[in-house]
Simulated assay, not measured.
Amino acid sequence: MITYEPFYKTMEEKGITEYNLIFKNGIPPGTIQRMRHGGNITLKTLDTLCFILDCDVCDIIKYEKDK
């Protein structure tokens, strides 16, 4: 299972809010909503978030084995 747990930690460390992502960087609110609920995002969105946050993919998503 893919989790976005690292995403919120990275945002906090970088001082970037969801508001900033949506209104200053053009990330659709639906994308943030899907991430909040563990939904899917595209690789293009993942690439954009890495660029905005100046981070690696592992700073946004993490794989956890299903139990």
Rank of each mutant, 00 (worst) to 15 (best):
M1G: 08
T3P: 00
T3H: 05
T3A: 06
Y4F: 13
Y4C: 01
Y4L: 04
Y4D: 00
Y4R: 02
E5G: 10
E5M: 12
P6G: 03
F7A: 01
Y8R: 10
Y8D: 09
Y8V: 08
K9V: 15
K9M: 13
K9Y: 13
T10N: 05
M11F: 01
M11Y: 04
E12V: 07
E12C: 05
K14E: 07
G15F: 07
G15M: 09
G15C: 09
I16A: 03
E18F: 06
E18W: 00
I22L: 03
I22G: 01
I22D: 01
F23K: 15
F23E: 14
F23D: 14
K24G: 09
P28H: 12
P28C: 08
P28Y: 08
G30A: 11
G30Y: 07
T31N: 12
T31K: 09
Q33P: 04
Q33Y: 13
Q33N: 14
R34P: 00
R34C: 06
M35G: 02
R36T: 08
H37R: 14
G38L: 06
G38M: 05
G38D: 05
N40M: 10
N40E: 12
N40P: 03
N40Y: 10
N40G: 10
I41F: 07
I41V: 13
T42A: 01
T45F: 03
D47A: 13
T48A: 12
T48P: 06
C50H: 04
C50Y: 05
C50G: 05
F51P: 05
F51A: 13
F51V: 11
I52K: 01
I52N: 03
L53F: 01
D54M: 06
C55T: 08
C55E: 05
D56E: 13
D56Y: 06
V57E: 07
C58P: 10
D59N: 11
D59H: 05
I60M: 06
I60R: 02
K62Y: 04
K62L: 07
K62P: 02
E64W: 07
K65I: 05
K65P: 04
K65H: 09
K65G: 06
K65Q: 10
D66F: 13
K67F: 11
